[in-house]
Amino acid sequence: MLPFKLDKIDKKILDILQVDGRITNAQLSKDIGLSPAPTLERVKKLENAGIIKSYHAKLDTEKINLGVSTYVMVSLKGHNRSNIEKFIKAIDGVDEIIECNHVTGSSDFILKVIAKDIPSYQKLMLEKVSEIEVVDSMQSMVILSTFKDSKKMPIPENK
Rank of each mutant, 00 (worst) to 15 (best):
residue 156 P to E: 04
residue 127 E to Q: 15
residue 43 V to P: 04
residue 53 K to F: 00
residue 25 N to D: 14
residue 56 H to F: 15
residue 28 L to I: 02
residue 6 L to N: 03
residue 159 K to C: 03
residue 121 Y to W: 11
residue 126 L to T: 14
residue 50 G to N: 06
residue 35 S to H: 06
residue 54 S to T: 14
residue 81 R to M: 14
residue 7 D to N: 15
residue 155 I to F: 04
residue 36 P to S: 12
residue 94 V to R: 05
residue 145 S to M: 00
residue 71 Y to S: 02
residue 109 F to T: 05
residue 136 D to K: 13
residue 37 A to M: 15
residue 12 K to L: 13
residue 54 S to K: 13
residue 61 T to P: 10
residue 146 T to A: 02
residue 13 I to Q: 06
residue 11 K to E: 08
residue 89 K to A: 14
residue 48 N to L: 06
residue 145 S to A: 08
residue 44 K to Y: 10
residue 7 D to T: 02
residue 123 K to P: 04
residue 150 S to R: 00
residue 79 H to W: 14
residue 117 D to R: 04
residue 28 L to G: 06
residue 12 K to R: 13
residue 118 I to H: 01
residue 57 A to R: 14
residue 61 T to G: 07
residue 21 G to K: 01
residue 152 K to T: 07
residue 99 E to Q: 11
residue 15 D to Y: 12
residue 122 Q to N: 15
residue 135 V to F: 03
residue 159 K to L: 09
residue 122 Q to K: 15
residue 97 I to A: 01
residue 91 I to D: 01
residue 138 M to P: 01
residue 131 E to Q: 15
residue 3 P to I: 03
residue 9 I to T: 15
residue 67 G to S: 11
residue 75 S to P: 06
residue 147 F to N: 12
residue 78 G to D: 13
residue 61 T to A: 10
residue 142 V to P: 01
residue 6 L to V: 00
residue 155 I to H: 09
residue 143 I to T: 03
residue 26 A to T: 15
residue 11 K to H: 04
residue 8 K to T: 10
residue 76 L to V: 02
residue 57 A to K: 13
residue 11 K to V: 07
residue 88 I to W: 09
residue 152 K to Q: 10
residue 15 D to S: 15
residue 20 D to K: 11
residue 43 V to Q: 06
residue 97 I to M: 04
residue 143 I to N: 05
residue 85 E to S: 15
residue 136 D to W: 04
residue 127 E to S: 13
residue 77 K to F: 11
residue 8 K to S: 13
residue 90 A to T: 05
residue 102 H to G: 07
residue 46 L to F: 02
residue 156 P to L: 07
residue 39 T to Y: 09
residue 34 L to I: 10
residue 130 S to G: 01
residue 123 K to T: 14
residue 93 G to C: 02
residue 86 K to P: 09
residue 40 L to T: 13
residue 114 I to G: 08
residue 32 I to E: 02
